[in-house]
Design a binder for these strands. Structure first.
Lengths: 233, 233
DNA sequence: ATTCTTAATATGTACGTACTTATTATGTCA
DNA sequence: TGACATAATAAGTACGTACATATTAAGAAT
């Protein structure tokens, strides 16, 4: 006995990955057809397909119908990161979550917001500024714009009590989103609100969501200094 | 004719997702077994499995053997973002890529580096500081530490000519990595190197890679002001 | 009650077949 | 030479079966 079993999809994936790392197949090269790899490695094609899906998801290969599978010419590091609901993040760390509505107004969005949501002409939106607190210390400031066309019900929500993000998560599913990360310096108003020095470097997480190509909301969240986003493996 | 076909895995996924969004299954609730869902929706269990894999990857549900599938109690936004090789990023935008080695030295790593790689006691490493330029303008500054235990060959590479990251990508495959994002203010030295004002807010991308639990390298890349990381859908 | 053993169960994986579809190559006609 | 129709191809998807495995629940023994 001790006959080696058939390969599992992870082993198939690692084998193919090794072919690429060893230089047997270089950037841009075409890999054999799934069926041929299955024959070589003595497994079912579906196992190779599963392995290839993983490599494709990881950004290692490109797959196209009829075109075959090629090693990605520009290798990238693909990181998946979880952006938690702020309340859950704070409570998960043992903090007491607090929320404070700073301002709320119907207004025509300025150019940066228009660009974020992809509108040519401005339509009236609801602007909501709010602070998320951890043990009464400012943790994150959000400047949010909500479309009154896709989410008119927001007008009847008391945003002094209910967190706009949590209402939207529960009531407005989205089909597409975009996230941006960048750094800004705290301007005087932000410095006061977040209780930091003017000019302090802050991480910004900017998120926009759409339902069927219609924007729902765009939000610029500025995190407390020292805040880090983390992604593993 | 016009008989509706069987459901595809994306439709099955969306159907289950709708059950969750509509509140039919709330946070923490247990979903029916795959086999039962397959029966209800009139498709094969493998189709449900494929759909569930996607929902699980997206952070919508948790699946455990024997324990069944539950709606994730803490919904997260899971974003996947590609961190490109700096050269490819610059050349992809039509810029001319430039590289300049700033400093290179064998040294004992300081505490933050030790923590990043997960070492208790310091071992000698190779520190490499370098600038990536786009059309001769500083684009990114990297402060890198390389393990001489897992990558001793780096000592025979002329890092004034060859980019350490590109050498590592080609020669040192890794099994695990970690990425962190945060904001810092430019200190005097960084301000000079990157040709920005002192105190300017900069985005930091900190990456560490391991092979079989042994660290290979950790790098702190500081991006030019205005730099954004973007993730879609 | 507590610990250990054992059985039940839902997901995880592998297989092989059949069929669909996007894309590329080939060939035809102007 | 070019535009366009057509065929060939390789990945994509769906199915149903079989078996593996992690985990929980139930039961037995202390």
């Amino acid at each position: 006995m001790t006959e080696d079993q058939r390969l599992g999809w992870r082993e198939v994936r690692d084998t193919i990955h090794d072919w690429i790392l060893s230089g047997r197949y270089g950037a841009g090269d075409k890999l054999p057809r799934d069926a041929d790899i299955a024959g070589d490695l003595d497994c079912a094609r579906s196992t190779v397909v599963r392995a290839m899906q993983d490599l494709s998801d990881a950004g290692v290969v490109d797959r196209r119908r009829r075109g075959g599978t090629r090693v990605r010419p520009d290798p990238v590091v693909r990181a998946t990161l979880d952006i938690p609901i702020t309340r859950a993040e704070i409570e998960g760390k043992g903090g007491r979550y607090g929320y404070r509505l700073v301002r709320q107004a119907r207004a025509l969005p300025p150019a940066p917001v228009l660009e974020a949501v992809g509108w040519d002409a401005p339509h009236e939106m609801l602007q909501v500024e709010a602070l998320h607190l951890s043990d009464n210390v400012p943790h994150m400031f959000e400047d949010r714009w909500i479309s009154l066309e896709t989410a008119p019900e927001i007008l009847s929500v008391d945003l002094a009590v209910q967190n706009a993000n949590e209402w939207l998560v529960l009531n407005k599913p989205y089909s597409r989103f975009e996230v941006r990360f960048y750094a800004v310096a705290a301007d005087p108003r932000l410095a006061v609100l977040m209780q930091v020095a003017e000019g302090a470097p802050m991480l910004v997480i900017e998120r926009t969501t759409w339902i069927a190509e219609q924007p729902i909301t765009t939000v610029k969240s500025v995190a407390r200094p020292g805040f880090q986003l983390l992604s593993r493996s």
